[in-house]
């Protein structure tokens, strides 16, 4: 009994430094932001405004559009990317594969690209007379060029393509690292029992990687709910507000327009609430049962 209690105390020691740092540099500013969300005014001229900012949010068509857009990205992009990342990591985990280092590095590299290059290149590739349209026209997949940046539908598709391009390799490396922890003998046994690659993937790999899949699902959800770089750099939220995200709107409210930190903070807490809801759903769905 005494031993158990001392182990428990020791456990607190292990987590102590992390708790202190996260409290100081995240929770303390978060609390300040929460207080800010009940204040209103320009820049530093703030006064208490109660729930005004939250009320204003419900009637702000731009905020609602941003929330809608963010949802669309989330629902389509996160599952596609996670499946793709799992698929690549399984291919790359094949012990007989040659040029592994090259393939792994190549697929990971988009995650490190400089935003300047990222935005210039994507706009260049997807311009009306750009390479992507030429390619699709040549294959007769389309009869006239797609207005990737000017059409509300295709601009969203472009953002989804761009996020998937940039973050698939990033998620892949979590799986690659985790796959090393999967006992190879399980696969041998399955093969002996006549399981094909698909069955191995669905009945062994996915269940074994569950903790990490849950991790990437939640962090990708958070990442998408806070999506900023892509719309900011590729479409600037356009055409109109059709690709605007909540995070970009927060940025605009704080730094692009006359600074309204109180309202910006209120919009931020919308993201917090949405993320909490989604995370609970994911924990429940994927079952992090002990």
């Amino acid at each position: 009994m005494k031993l158990v209690r001392s182990k428990d105390l020791l456990g607190w020691f292990f987590i102590l430094i992390a708790v202190i740092f996260i409290t100081l540099f995240y929770f303390y500013p978060m609390l300040q932001a929460l207080i800010l969300s009940f204040q209103s005014g320009m820049g530093v001229n703030l006064e208490f405004a109660g729930l005004d900012n939250y009320r204003r949010l419900l009637n702000d068509p731009v905020a609602l559009t941003a929330i809608r857009n963010t949802f669309i990205y989330l629902i389509i992009q996160v599952p596609v990317m996670i499946l793709l990342a799992l698929f690549f990591s399984v291919l790359l985990n094949n012990p007989d594969l040659k040029f592994k280092g090259f393939f792994r590095t190549a697929i990971f590299l988009p995650a490190v690209i400089s935003l300047v290059a990222y935005s210039v290149i994507f706009k260049y590739l997807f311009s009306t007379d750009g390479i992507v349209n030429k390619f699709l026209l040549n294959l007769s997949l389309i009869s006239e060029p797609i207005e990737w940046l000017m059409d509300p539908f295709w601009a969203k598709v472009l953002i989804i393509i761009a996020i998937t391009w940039r973050w698939t390799g990033y998620n892949m490396i979590f799986y690659l690292a985790a796959l090393q922890n999967v006992d190879k003998s399980v696969y041998e046994a399955a093969r002996v029992d006549g399981a094909n690659s698909f069955q191995q993937f669905f009945y062994i790999t996915i269940p074994m990687l569950k903790p990490i899949i849950l991790f990437t699902a939640i962090t990708s959800t958070i990442g998408t709910l806070q999506l900023f770089d892509e719309p900011m750099n590729i479409t600037r939220g356009g055409p109109g507000n059709e690709t605007l995200t909540i995070s970009q709107y927060i940025y605009n409210l704080s730094f692009e327009y006359t600074p309204d930190f109180g309202y910006a903070a209120a919009v931020s807490f919308v993201i917090v609430i949405l993320t909490v809801i989604f995370s609970i759903i994911q924990f429940r769905l994927r079952g992090d049962k002990k």
Binding site: Y26, F27, T219, F261, A264, S268, V276
Partner: peptide, 24 residues
């Protein structure tokens, strides 16, 4: 419980923390 609370800190966009963090 502490762990669940820690996870909460991931959920706010950094753009919203920047001003308070700068003041800090």
């Amino acid at each position: 419980i502490v762990f669940t609370i820690l996870l909460l800190s991931m959920m706010i966009p950094f753009a919203a923390l920047m001003i308070p963090l700068f003041r800090f």
